[in-house]
Design a protein around this nucleic acid. Structure first.
Length: 255
DNA sequence: ATGGTCGGGAACCGA
């Protein structure tokens, strides 16, 4: 079975691209981020007409995450635990096809320093605590999404240009490293330990044409899920299409 | 060169 994550950067503008990618690659479970719409505006009918079940956590104009699957999506939680006052639509967790599967849109955190960076680090601390609790359940879990962190300079086309960015700060990297070190397998890097791979290219400055990208979209597999990993990849060609998102789908195949 | 590009939604904010 193929599991994927795709930051669509606006489901309204991206639906045709999403539908053609779903048809072309036939994934089984998909985490979506940056819907930028409320739940009642999510195109559930168009997706249902093509056989997709959907669970949605939306917000007007910003953020927004969803999970698509071929079968039922049983929502477990619609927010990351640890801050009842956090209303941003960045986390959705469900039981799907025998897995626990989460769609994550981690805060960007710019500018540094500032309240947005503090919010990012706080969010990462809460994610770390919740991820540890999920690991303790010893079930197959996949945490898929836009983590807004470049783990190392191998994941950054222009490290000097990004040195002051929230995505590359030592604190951001340390929090991501600590998360993975709990016992998660980051699928793409496990499959390609040394390769230069990106999942995002900025709209500005011709970044795609110059291949000035970042790798910030990941699937983290619990040990019970990692044991089933067959392959992983990034659908880079999606970025070359008309009206493309600035992110592309990242996927893992499990047996 | 103090810009450049998108999406959402209706003037700017977020990325």
């Amino acid at each position: 079975m193929r599991l994927a994550t795709f930051n669509v950067n606006g489901i309204g503008a991206r639906l045709p691209r999403l539908l053609e990618w779903l048809e072309a690659t036939r994934p089984d479970i998909v985490a979506l981020q940056e819907l930028k719409c409320e739940e009642h505006r999510f195109p559930a009918d168009e997706l249902a007409a093509r056989g997709w079940h959907a669970a949605v956590c939306g917000e007007r104009g910003f953020n927004g995450v969803a999970i698509l699957a071929r079968g039922p999506v049983e929502v477990v939680r619609r927010a990351l635990p640890g801050d009842a006052g956090d209303r941003q639509a960045r986390y959705l967790e469900a039981d799907v096809a025998g897995l626990r599967f989460a769609s994550i849109y981690l805060p960007n955190g710019n500018p540094v320093p500032g309240p947005k960076f503090d919010y990012k680090l706080g969010w990462m601390a809460r994610l770390g605590a919740h991820a540890a609790a999920l690991l303790a359940e010893e079930i197959p879990v996949v945490l898929a999404g836009d983590y807004n962190v470049c783990p190392t300079d191998l994941d950054v086309a222009r490290p000097d240009q990004m040195a002051g960015d929230a995505l590359c700060q030592p604190e951001s990297r340390a929090a991501f490293r600590a998360l993975v070190a709990q016992g998660w397998t980051e699928a793409t890097r496990a499959r390609f330990p040394e390769e230069v791979l990106y999942s995002y290219w900025d709209y500005q400055g011709g970044a795609w044409a110059k291949d000035w990208g970042l790798r910030i979209d990941f699937l983290l597999l619990s040990p019970a899920a990692a044991d089933r990993m067959l392959d992983a990849g990034i659908d880079r060609d999606v970025r070359a299409r008309e009206k493309a998102s600035d992110h592309v789908p990242v996927w893992v195949d499990l047996r």
